[in-house]
Simulated assay, not measured.
Amino acid sequence: MIKKAENIIVGISIGDLNGIGSEVVLKTFEDSRMLELCTPVVFANVKILSFIKRNLESAVVLHGIDKLDQLVHGKINVLNVWKEGVDLNLGVNDDKVGEYAIKSFVAATKALKEGLVDVLVTAPINKYNIQSEDFKFPGHTDYLDQELEGDALMFMVQDNLRVGLLTDHVPINEVASRLTEDLIVKKIETVRRSLIRDFSIGNPKIAVLGLNPHCGDGGVIGKEDEELIKPVLKKIFDKGTMVFGPFAADGFFGSGHYEKFDAVIATYHDQGLVPFKTLSFGKGVNFTAGLSKVRTSPDHGTAYDIAGKGIADFNSFKEAVYLAVDVYRSRIQYEEMTEKPLKVREK
């Protein structure tokens, strides 16, 4: 049975309390129709969120709970992950606030693993103030990759535009050395499986961008495209995966060529995210493909410069909630279809 939409429980980690995370969460659920889509559970503290709500003059009603079995469908539930007060200085990088961002995230991830929430949507964190002896990860994705089954892949999504990465948060001078046949094969397979299971695309077409300008111009400005990427893509294609490339990155998006494919895989972070964020108009979502559970996040950061001013655009966070619910339901449908394949009527 497909789970009813309003009963899909969306766990939300609050992110950096000095940033715009709380604002975009509250603004998203000011629209009461969102509570018909899902049941949100914010992992934070109801007193802190109530303070931020008053500061933003938000009309939302928060329902504080101390255990997840106390949640109420049709309400904005706030699970009290901590009891003590937190001193906020909106717009300021604060290591202490970073600790609470991780408390929220770790608790939400634990609930996701245990099946107490169905999906996870993460508000933005500051990658610098979250570091500690207990948490030594560059960000959300690396921790989720450790805690959940699978191989995490950053997959940026906005409607039919989907951009994955062979390497993500890697210094540019290390990208070429990180590219291997095994990595390329694994990432393409992760994208292919995600397109089928998470987006209900039967036989997806995938484009891969080249590493060097003009894909190396036959080796004149780099040999990786000709000697590594192209042969690997041919092997994968010959085994039945509809993968094409490498394509020169400079004109690929501007020409609209990306529209011919179900997903595009860039070789490094900015090669994929610069055109994605240019085309997505503030509605892009960061989806972590390849994991056993569903996690999404908005495609922006903490935005300290506008924190507390009530002017943050919440559309990316709202789209992250929509996508999390859509992917969750798509996975249920996929599992039901694969477990109970349709019978072919005999002639």
Rank of each mutant, 00 (worst) to 15 (best):
F43C: 07
T267S: 07
M154F: 00
G216D: 04
S280F: 08
T167Y: 07
W82I: 05
K234N: 08
I172Q: 05
L228W: 03
G222D: 02
S132A: 03
D225F: 05
P275R: 03
K186V: 08
G219N: 11
N89Y: 09
G308Q: 12
S280Y: 06
I65D: 04
Q333D: 14
P231G: 03
V157T: 04
K83M: 10
S22M: 06
S50Q: 13
M154T: 00
L88F: 10
N129Q: 12
V106Y: 10
L71K: 14
K239Y: 04
I196T: 04
G98A: 01
K239N: 09
R33W: 11
K47Q: 13
G256D: 01
D305G: 03
D217I: 10
Y322H: 14
E30M: 00
Q158F: 15
D66L: 14
L62Q: 00
D262S: 02
T241E: 08
N315A: 15
D225M: 02
P171N: 14
E84W: 04
D151A: 08
G150A: 01
D87M: 09
Q333K: 15
F317G: 10
F317N: 04
I52V: 10
D168L: 12
P298G: 13
N129S: 13
T28W: 01
Y322W: 12
D142A: 13
G216H: 06
D270T: 07
D142L: 11
V119S: 04
E133Q: 13
A312E: 05
G308E: 12
F247S: 12
Y304M: 08
I12A: 12
I2D: 01
L273A: 11
I221A: 05
K234H: 05
L211G: 05
E319M: 14
S50P: 06
D270Q: 06
L79Q: 11
T122W: 08
L148Q: 07
R33H: 14
K103V: 02
I201E: 12
K343A: 15
D87Y: 11
P40W: 05
S13I: 08
E6S: 14
G21K: 13
E174C: 13
T109F: 07
T338D: 09
N129I: 08
L153I: 00
A249D: 02
F43Y: 15
G115W: 01
E84D: 06
E30P: 00
F199K: 11
P138S: 04
L183N: 11
S13C: 11
I311S: 14
H300P: 02
T288M: 05
S194R: 00
